[in-house]
Amino acid sequence: MEVRTIKVFTTVDNINLHTQVVDMSMTYGQQFGPTYLDGADVTKIKPHNSHEGKTFYVLPNDDTLRVEAFEYYHTTDPSFLGRYMSALNHTKKWKYPQVNGLTSIKWADNNCYLATALLTLQQIELKFNPPALQDAYYRARAGEAANFCALILAYCNKTVGELGDVRETMSYLFQHANLDSCKRVLNVVCKTCGQQQTTLKGVEAVMYMGTLSYEQFKKGVQIPCTCGKQATKYLVQQESPFVMMSAPPAQYELKHGTFTCASEYTGNYQCGHYKHITSKETLYCIDGALLTKSSEYKGPITDVFYKENSYTTTIK
């Protein structure tokens, strides 16, 4: 009895394709271990004539594949690729409408935090270190965002349907971005203890939790000093293409032309909904596939993004 075979390709990165001759009487799992086709788990399936010449994702289970996976995804987590594939199996079914010149995501599976993050990423200057993220990001900007969303979920250790947080998501993504040249110098002034300067680099240099107003941050924000008295913390120097200011959701007025974009969060910790506000020729609110415009805006804002380049204080 002759062994019926077909020729397929296996890959971990969709760049390096490895030619395989597979036995049609055995499952993919018996031949390769966990195997995925377009995100779908085909591990328990036997090869079919229609699979001839198709590319299958496999887990990096030998040295060659491990090197290829690390170079593309910059992670050695053995569960990463499987999590990416199972997320992709959902995100490829989502709709990605162009809204006001940006790629958004039609609401499904509690994905409003991903839509808000995706919209924000198209408006701030950011370059990702893992080629996987950078490639998928370019495709997302062009309207094909399924891979990018699935990668975000995998890097953030999230599953489809789980509630997510924009600030946490951005923080994970910033860790995989090139923020080497970003720098922030802060000064804390206390009447009792004097003053202390701190220099922050990388992710810490672009994120701040405690106030939404970048102007206020430049002037000074009140913080408790270690001595128990009130101290003032203010920005001395900022070198970065953008800054992200966050605070627990509270009524906040966004003035046209003073910011790049913002995240609105309605609801409580267990259950809520994100919308995205962007400042173009007027203010726009993007909620999944829905767009509304207004000249002014007041609502429960939790993150505001500002364009920056270089700032030095005039406070002496």
Rank of each mutant, 00 (worst) to 15 (best):
D109S: 03
Y269S: 15
E162Q: 06
F148R: 03
G82F: 14
L173A: 05
Y274C: 15
G210L: 01
F217C: 01
T5Y: 10
K280H: 08
Q30D: 14
I277T: 00
L235C: 15
T292M: 09
F32Y: 07
K127E: 15
Q237N: 08
T116M: 04
D303H: 00
F70M: 15
E204W: 07
C261F: 02
L235W: 15
A108P: 00
T169I: 10
Q196D: 08
N49T: 13
E52H: 12
R66N: 13
C190G: 02
A205Q: 01
A146V: 01
L179H: 07
Q251R: 01
Q98W: 10
L212F: 02
P241A: 11
M245Q: 06
T120R: 04
Q230P: 12
A87W: 15
A250T: 14
T91I: 00
E239Y: 04
A262M: 01
Y234P: 00
E125M: 04
Y311V: 08
E71I: 02
T292R: 11
S294M: 15
T312N: 08
S246N: 02
D165A: 13
T55A: 09
F70W: 11
D287S: 00
T169H: 02
Y96G: 06
R167T: 08
A250S: 11
Q197T: 13
K298H: 14
E215I: 03
Q197C: 07
P97Y: 09
F305G: 02
K280C: 10
A177I: 08
Q98R: 15
T292W: 08
C112H: 03
S263K: 00
T199Q: 10
S310A: 10
N187D: 06
E168W: 09
Q196T: 12
Y208V: 03
Y113V: 03
E281A: 05
K127G: 07
L212P: 05
Y72R: 10
Y208M: 06
Y284M: 10
K106C: 08
P300E: 14
D23A: 11
K275F: 08
K293E: 15
A87T: 06
E52N: 12
E2V: 10
T282I: 07
L114Y: 03
V189N: 09
M245A: 08
C261L: 03
E264F: 04
L88V: 08
V189H: 11
D62I: 07
N268F: 15
R184L: 03
Y284I: 14
G257C: 05
D41T: 10
V304L: 02
K93V: 07
S295E: 11
Y138C: 14
Y155S: 05
M245Y: 09
R184W: 09
F9A: 14
V67E: 14
G202R: 03
Q175H: 12
Y269E: 15
P131F: 02
A262V: 03
T11W: 08
T232F: 05
K106Y: 06
T75W: 03
E204P: 10
F259V: 02
Y274W: 04
C261K: 00
Y73H: 02
A154L: 05
T292Y: 07
K280D: 10
L291H: 15
F80W: 05
F217T: 04
V12Q: 06
Q30F: 04
C227M: 02
L212C: 11
K255H: 06
M245K: 01
F242D: 01
G220P: 05
D135E: 14
V243C: 04
A262L: 01
Y297I: 11
L179V: 03
Q30M: 13
G210Q: 07
G29N: 12
V67S: 14
H273E: 00
Y138G: 12
Q20C: 08
I223P: 01
F148T: 00
I105R: 02
V188L: 09
Y36K: 05
L59H: 05
V58A: 03
K219N: 12
N129Q: 09
T64N: 08
I315W: 14
D109Y: 01
S263A: 14
L179T: 03
I6M: 11
V206P: 04
A262I: 00
Q31R: 10
L151M: 06
R4Q: 07
C112E: 01
G101N: 09
L102W: 00
V12G: 06
R139P: 05
G29P: 08
V67D: 13
Y36H: 06
D23C: 12
Y269G: 15
R139M: 11
P60I: 07
K46Q: 12
N100I: 12
Y311P: 14
A40R: 10
G257F: 03
G257A: 06
T198L: 15
T282V: 10
K275S: 13
G161M: 02
Y137G: 04
L121K: 01
H176Y: 14
T27S: 10
Y57T: 12
A115M: 13
Y36C: 01
L153K: 04
F242T: 00
F148H: 04
I277S: 01
D38L: 10
I301C: 07
N178W: 03
Q31D: 07
Q197K: 14
F217I: 12
Q230L: 15
T103K: 08
K92D: 05
S279V: 06
L119C: 06
R83M: 07
V22M: 10
Q175G: 04
I152F: 03
T266G: 06
T19V: 12
Q195S: 15
Y155I: 03
T75I: 10
N178I: 05
D62E: 14
T55C: 10
S279K: 02
A117H: 04
V243A: 02
T103P: 02
G164I: 01
I124V: 01
Y28D: 06
L118F: 12
N268P: 15
C193H: 03
V3P: 14
Q251I: 15
F56M: 08
Y96P: 10
T211F: 03
E2L: 11
A140Q: 02
L212I: 06
L81P: 06
T282E: 11
A142D: 14
D165K: 02
V206H: 04
N129Y: 05
A231S: 04
P224V: 14
P249D: 06
D41Y: 07
K44R: 12
F305M: 03
L102I: 04
G82D: 15
Y274R: 00
Q222G: 10
I301Y: 00
A132L: 03
L200V: 09
I105C: 07
P60E: 06
I124D: 01
F174E: 04
F9D: 08
D41E: 10
D62W: 00
K280N: 09
A250E: 12
T260A: 11
I277C: 00
I301N: 05
A40L: 13
Y73I: 01
Q230C: 03
A262R: 01
M85C: 07
I286M: 08
Q20H: 13
K201S: 13
T282F: 07
S294K: 09
L114K: 00
A87V: 06
H18R: 08
F32E: 04
W107L: 03
H74S: 01
D62L: 06
G267Q: 15
S50N: 13
T76C: 15
Q238H: 07
P248W: 14
A205E: 00
A150I: 01
Y297V: 10
T278I: 08
G161T: 02
G272T: 01
V21A: 13
W107S: 05
K255N: 03
A262G: 07
D165N: 15
F148P: 04
Y269C: 11
G33C: 02
W107C: 01
C271R: 11
R83K: 11
L133R: 03
N100Q: 14
E215K: 02
E204V: 08
G228Q: 08
A145M: 02
M26A: 13
A289P: 10
Y137S: 05
I286E: 01
E71S: 08
N268A: 15
K233T: 11
V166D: 05
S79E: 00
Y137K: 01
K298Q: 14
N61M: 14
M209S: 14
N100D: 09
L119S: 02
S171Y: 15
T159Q: 15
A69F: 15
G267T: 15
Y73S: 06
H48L: 13
